[in-house]
Computed example of a mutant assay.
Amino acid sequence: MELTDAQRQHLPLRVLLGAATEVERQAQRYAAAAVYEAIGAGAGWETVAAAAGMETAQAYSRWSSAKVLRLFRPSPGENPELPAGQRRWAAERLGAALTQLQDCSQVSLLDAARQADLTPAFTTGVLSGEFMPPWPVVHMLASIFKGEPIELRALWECGQGRVLPSRLSAEGTAGYLAAALRGLHLAAGRPPLEQLAKGGLSATSVGRILSGHVIPDWPDTAHLVSVLGGRPGDLHGLWQEVHSAVLTLYGAFPPPCEPGPADIAVHHDGESV
């Protein structure tokens, strides 16, 4: 409920105050996520403090990992209940992707925990798939392991019981789908592209799909998600957004034009157009 709508409806004070409290809590979450994305991108706590107009120690105290973890714990009834198997599957896939990044980065678990201001036990639980952490923690660990956090976003969202709305521009939606597929590729241990090919979908086409240069049609998307250990239904809503975005940009799917080097093609029935 919008706070202004509640006021116009002359609802009881208890309802108005409850709505105001929720607005404040969501604002705190937004600020915390923004801080951790900045930290993950290389900003120091001095930069965060300057932007917030406070001392460095105050900024660190306000947005320490422990406080952020508490802030992002869902309130009762906030997120839809997920079957235990689905939540466990999502946590395990996310943990596998983070473990793959850690192995490639050669950053020790203890060092990662120290940099992220987490306990070693909690960090171990995240990488083993035992815990589903808040998004700022995922972003921080992916950055510490020199990965791209956006590639893990869809894996994390699967554990939140959400459809996968990108809320991006039409141009950005296709890139989000490619990032989601790269996240599944990462969680699967980055198998050779030849293992992902089938029929008219060559290894070269798979590489172009994962890099975001080609948008796959739905059969090829479903194939890649399945062979990478994912569930096609989780990404169907996102693919539909891509389909809609292409229609918005070009008026047809696939787009009725020959793409230039910087354009995005659409893989359809084994061909790039």
Rank of each mutant, 00 (worst) to 15 (best):
G40T: 04
G230W: 07
Q102A: 05
P12R: 10
L13F: 09
R167Y: 14
L168G: 13
F253R: 04
I215C: 09
G42T: 05
G147W: 09
D269F: 14
H243S: 00
G161D: 08
V138N: 05
W239T: 00
E24S: 11
E271S: 10
E24N: 09
E46R: 15
Y60M: 12
E241W: 10
M132H: 15
A197L: 10
S205V: 05
S169W: 11
L181A: 07
W45Y: 05
R29F: 06
G260Y: 06
S143G: 02
Q240C: 07
K198H: 12
T119S: 15
I264C: 09
D111E: 14
G175Q: 10
G207P: 04
E271K: 14
R167M: 09
L13I: 11
E37V: 10
A91M: 09
E22R: 15
A188N: 04
G200I: 05
A52I: 00
V225W: 03
S105L: 06
D234E: 13
W135K: 07
D117I: 00
A59Q: 06
S128Y: 02
F145C: 01
Q240K: 12
A262D: 13
R62E: 08
Q86M: 14
A33C: 07
P74A: 10
Q100K: 12
A27G: 08
L127S: 03
P259Q: 01
V214G: 04
Q102Y: 13
E78P: 09
K67N: 13
A262M: 12
A197G: 08
H243Y: 14
L238N: 01
G199D: 15
Q9C: 09
V107F: 05
E241A: 07
A142K: 06
E258H: 14
W218K: 02
A49F: 01
G233D: 12
V126E: 02
D217N: 14
Q115H: 15
L238Y: 02
E37Q: 15
Q102D: 01
D5L: 11
L82V: 08
S143E: 00
Q9V: 05
H185S: 06
M54F: 02
L224S: 01
A179S: 15
D234N: 10
R62I: 01
S166Y: 01
R182H: 06
V227L: 03
P232G: 06
L181H: 03
L193S: 13
L249A: 13
Y250S: 06
Q100Y: 10
Y60V: 03
R167V: 00
F253T: 00
D217T: 05
P254Q: 10
T119E: 13
G200N: 13
H213M: 06
P80I: 06
P149R: 01
Q240T: 08
P12E: 05
A116S: 13
L177W: 06
D269Q: 15
A49V: 02
Y36F: 15
A170I: 01
P149D: 03
P136Y: 02
G199R: 11
S64D: 12
A41M: 05
Q240L: 12
P254D: 06
L98F: 07
L98E: 01
G147A: 04
G77W: 08
G207D: 03
Q9T: 07
R62V: 01
A59Y: 04
G95E: 02
H223S: 04
P259S: 01
S143F: 02
W89N: 05
Y250R: 11
L109C: 06
A112E: 01
L17I: 09
